[in-house]
Design a protein around this nucleic acid. Sequence first.
RNA 1: GCCUCUGUAGCUCAGUCGGUAGAGUACGACCAUGGUAAGGUUGGGGUCACCGGUUCAAGUCCGGUCGGAGGCUCCA
Length: 584
Amino acid sequence: MNAKEQKKLEKLQKMRHSMAHVMAGAVLKLMPEAKFAIGPAIDNGFYYDFDLPRKLTNEDLATIEELMKEIIKENLPFEKEVLSRAEALEMFKDQPYKVELIQELPEDEEISIFRMGDAFVDLCRGPHVEDTSRLNAQGFKLLSIAGAYWRGDEKRPMLQRIYATAFGDPKALKAHLEFLEEMEKRDHRRVGKEQDLFSLHEEAGPGLVYWHPKGARMRVTIEDFWRKEHYKNGYDMVFTPHVGKSWLWETSGHLDFYKEGMYPNMVMDDVNYYAKPMNCPFHIMIYKNGKHSYRDLPYRWAELGTVYRYERSGTLHGLLRVRGFTQDDAHLICTPDQMQSEISEVLRFSLFMLRSFGFSDISAYLSTMPEKSVGEKERWDAATESLRKAIEDEGLEYKVDEGGGAFYGPKIDLKVKDTMGREWQLSTVQFDFNLPDRFDMTFTDNDGQEKRPYVIHRALLGSIERFFGVLIENYGGAFPVWLAPTQVRVIPVSEKFEDYAKKVERSLRAEDILVDGDYSDDRMNAKIRNAQNEKIPYMVVVGEKEMNDSAVSIRVRTGEQLNGMPLDDAISMINEKIAKKEMP
RNA sequence: GCCUCUGUAGCUCAGUCGGUAGAGUACGACCAUGGUAAGGUUGGGGUCACCGGUUCAAGUCCGGUCGGAGGCUCCA
């Protein structure tokens, strides 16, 4: 962000924070008994948390909005006053949340309040606009009421939060509201239903995904590509069980540290079994099956491994947060000498995968050693440096999260920005200094000594379910040709041309193009409309002219029209789009 | 898990003051045989999420249960 953008953002934040005070003033007018918590500016707007004598309703939002407009019209000045701690405590003695905030302020911090005329006074560091005439009464909108714990702590009282969006001018507000509408249209749950891609069934288990034929078709496309590229990049595939005896999870430490994230035990022959929340212990079992020489390393073992984790019911969200999902997992097991090249390769591979799916705006986050950790510092340092070097060699923008690594190793996370500017964390490359010790993994080095290998977990897409959700939202359901579950729909102009249409369909299918035909008794117009709504890349229309010339007329999803194209040309054109992973 | 909102046909939704259920769409049948975003007619489809209560009578009111949505990270 440059200096100009920075300044603009600060101005917006000042305006939004001032708006939050206006909203608090309006709520105070509506309910004089209101207790106030905090009201910061956030991305695209602001919120304020209140403790109120009754529940807010959507009608209240409209009322509050009107009251806010009145306050803005009154041109109330924002005036700062500096108080002593005692004065502040006295002033807010009826406001328990403010008292708590004051008491927690450091000794040497200035305590200030802001008065907004006589409508509202708040403990606040500021800054604020000079007076409410600087705020645009048409530039904000109250969005929603939500419950929020005081200080985000579920043991503290639940407050009522009002979210609002605010921009400097009405035009920007309108643009943002349109953006929100577009988000709704792209919501993967909505598109998934519209295009019949997947479903979830509360009666059969919340957070568990059912892939319908079209969604499954896309998943197969994704997985086939994934497998092919993994073999090309020197990986081997493994398959491992979905459950394991408690011995495995005791050894790995999951039962000590991750039990609340696991599905509960199943008892068989008086022994506890657990569904796997992670694949690593199984891959390690394969390693432990024999002796290994430094000459055999590195191993790169990949698995589309389905894992089950307990997520609290309130956090489940479509495909993005589920209880059963398939990690595109792999473990790299290597010698210290091989570590740098393995890390560089996996990062390069990861970028290749993400870019193949159309994500070009990628940034990295490097997380380093936390206070509580296992493994020697030298290994941490070596591993962290190899991660850093790999990022820098790729010329990626990155941020360092000091002390943000897991207790068992440093990591890189990659985030992509989608077409709507939202960030998603997908790839992760993570060292593990814990499991090799716990499972006593060794290899024989060239000096005949038994040594500990490095183990690196990595997932490129993250999970197939979540990645699929991100893909749907990124493309809004209008997928590039290679991913589309139906790439071509053949539409005969009338029943008379069904035979030719079926012949065209067979020719395309013989070329591995995903094709279907619409032989319903709808009129052609309706068929076009349906295909267009399904966002099928190519509509191949055939009638008398086409039949006579062994040709097709193509209507592209974009509206582009390619009439009278020889069938063979159409096939090559479509195949080229598929091969190049392009949009139609 | 907790807070707010919410649950009516496969889907999107209407249903007033409590009087036993409605539209569009999808699906089936028939007619129409068509040239680039909805042809016409007609039919079937509901334990109004579930359990209980109030009432002569409950989709509607009350209580509970189970789902779904938004939120619970942004610090005066």
